[in-house]
Design a protein around this nucleic acid. Sequence first.
RNA 1: GGAGGGGUGGCAGAGUGGCCGAAUGCACCGGUCUUGAAAACCGGCGAUAUGCAAGUAUCCGUGGGUUCAAAUCCCACCCCCUCCGCCA
Length: 405
Amino acid sequence: MLDLKLIRSNPEKVKEGLKKRGSEIDLDTILLLDQKRRELLLETGTLKEKRNTVSEEIGKLKKEKKDAQEKILAMKEVSTKIKELDAQGKEIDEGITKILLEIPNLPHESVPIGENEKDNVEIRRWGEPRKFNFTPLTHGDIGEALDILDFERGAKIAAARFTVLKGMGAKLERALINFMLDLHTNEHGYKEIFPPFLVNAETMTGTGQLPKFEDDLFKTSNDLYLVPTAEVPLTNLHRQEILNDDDLPLYYAAYTACFRREAGSYGKDVRGLIRQHQFNKVELVKICRPEDSYNELETLTQNAEEVLKRLELPFRVVVLCTGDMGFSAAKTYDIEVWLPAQDRYREISSCSNCEDFQARRAMIRYRSKEKEKVNLVHTLNGSGLAVGRTLVAILENYQQKDGSI
RNA sequence: GGAGGGGUGGCAGAGUGGCCGAAUGCACCGGUCUUGAAAACCGGCGAUAUGCAAGUAUCCGUGGGUUCAAAUCCCACCCCCUCCGCCA
C-alpha cells in the first residue's frame, strides 16, 4: 500500500512511478475521495466536539436535578446528523482503501525501466555451464528413468501439476530442505520458523496477495488460504505490532510447502517439476529499519546465492526491470540457475525489497530510539531456494551418460 | 462438538452509564543524589487521523445497536483459558 499522504502531496511522482511499471492507475478518484474525506472529518469533528461538551453539561444538570430536556432534544438532532456523516465517511474510507489495496508498489530509482523479462539486466554470473559430450536429458526424463519422479501418479492421485517423489528423489528433496535451513540458520543468522501452511485473509492482505490475486490462491471451505510462499506467514508474524528498535533487524527462515493455482499459466512448463501447484521452498524474510533495507537486500541475495555455490551449480543474477516486478516489490533480484536441457538460465530464487509497502498494509512498525517516533519497518523476502527447482538443477547438471546422477 | 470463565496501554491490573484515553504497580526515558552504579526522590511516558500550530476527533478483541452521553447496557462474530467428548 502506498502512503496516501504521498499520493496527495506528489501525485505526479506516484503516477510516474506507476507508469514505469506499466500500471495506469487513475489517481483522480482517490484524490477526490481524500479531499471529501478531510472535509467530512472537519465537519464531524466539530459536531462531535459540540456533542461532547453539551453532553457533559447535561450530566451536570441532571446531577443537580435541573431540567435538561431542551439540550437533550438539541443533541438528539446533532447525533442524528453525526450518524449520517459518519456513515458517509465510512463509505468514503472504504472506497479509498479499496483503491489503495490494488495499487502496486513504486519501483526504486535504481531499477531499470522496461516492459517485461527481456528488459531485465544481468548483473553477475557464477560458475561455468558444463560442456556435455552427450545430449543432456531433461530432469523429467532422468527422473522417470530412475523412478524417482512420478508425474503420472501425481496426476492420478491429485491433478496435473502434482508430482510424486519416490525413493532417492524424495530423500534428495528432504536433504535439500535440511541443507538450506541449516546453512541459513547456522551460518547466516536466520531464526528458523515452522509456520502454519494455512492463513487467514488479513494475513494474505498484509503481504499483498489479497484482494487482487485471489485467483492465484487455493482457499479452504472455512475461509483459510493455503500459503503460496512462506513470505506470507513470516512477514505477518509481526502484523499490527510495534517492535523495539533493539529487535531489528529480524531474520527469519522457514520451510513450507507452497500452493499456487497457476491460473493463466496454461501450456507453460507443463512437463516436469518447474511449475507445480504444490512445491517446497525455503524462504528468507527480513524485517529491518528503512535506512538498512537496500544493504539487507544485497546480503539476502548473497545468502540465497550461497546455496547454489555450495552445490556448485552455475547461476546468474538479474535485476528485474520495472515491468517484470511483482506487485509488492520496489526492487527485485532474480537468481537463475543453469539448466542444460533447456540450454538456459531459469529462475530459482527471487529476492525483493518491499520497502514499507507491506509494512503499511500489515501495520508493522518500530519505535526508533533516536527520534522516539513510531515508523514503518521495511520488509524483504527471498527464496533460499525453491527446492523442487534445485532438485531439477542437480539432476540436469550432474547427469551422466549412463543415466545416473 | 458441549458447558463455564475471560479479552482494558509494553506487561500486570482497577474501572458496570456522565470531568475515563482510562487509577495503581512494574518496565522504560530524563533529572537530583553518587567517584560510578543501585536504592530513594522529582518529572515524563499509547496509537491514529486532521491541522502550520494550539488544538480537536477517534481508539478499552471485532462489527452492529440503545442513549443527550458507552470501556461500562444489548446483539452477533472472533480469539484465549478451564472442564467434558472426539482425535494424529
